[in-house]
Amino acid sequence: MKLKLKIWRQKNRNSKGKFEIYDLDNVSEEMTFLEMLDYLNSKLILEDKEPVAFDSDCREGICGMCGLYINGRTHGPEKEVTTCQLSMKAFKDRSTITVEPWRSKAFPVIKDLVVDRTSFDQLIQAGGYISADTGAAPEANSIIIKKETVDRAFDAGICIGCGACVATCKNASAMLFVGSKVTQLALLPQGKAEATIRAISMVAKMDELGFGNCTNTGACEAECPKGISISNIAKLNREYLYAKIQD
């Protein structure tokens, strides 16, 4: 394959970025998208040009470190894959591919395609946990939980924290990220005691960090590489409303 790559280049947090165009020959459709970028970088390095900075680690879709905005779609055109799992088969020969970092006030660009997602850690710090100190836990089978309940908690808990939901949302809302954590922990009996305070603290933190409001467009669900359901947002709203009524 022969490709024209239009890639966002930005030196650091404080500089202004711009698109650069690269022509890349001999791309195999067997490559993953990130292997294609590795290949581009190896060429740039040998041509004494600066390689493109981008994040990735596990390269099997579970760590959440990668994430690029490709041709206007988070993680590219395929459904339910992370950027690292995206195959070059998804692209046509002689096409132009536009590659950008996540765009969101809460995710500032550090360099090229790399963004700072510490705001997600801050959201979890605001209450995305069960306060069970080491050593204080009861015998695991003393808590009986319906299989369906645990399966639903698991489905909410598989979020990888990549940030695609925020990047794809026109309001840059983090409701799906927060909603899935609140839902996972509120469904489980172990997490119920803190369900109210958790919902209130996490939502307040979300506002404070500059994430936008949810207007139910559903883009987050459509673009989530793990297929996390928007029903988690409804559950968050219920938890939040219930908390406010109690207030």
Partner: peptide, 23 residues
């Protein structure tokens, strides 16, 4: 090892369950 399972369960790990609700 048993304390580890207790701890993770308490912290919200959704370990697989039987239909009975037991682990």
């Amino acid at each position: 090892s048993n304390s580890v399972i207790d701890q993770f369960t308490a912290q919200g790990v959704p370990f697989a369950r039987e239909y009975s609700g037991y682990l």
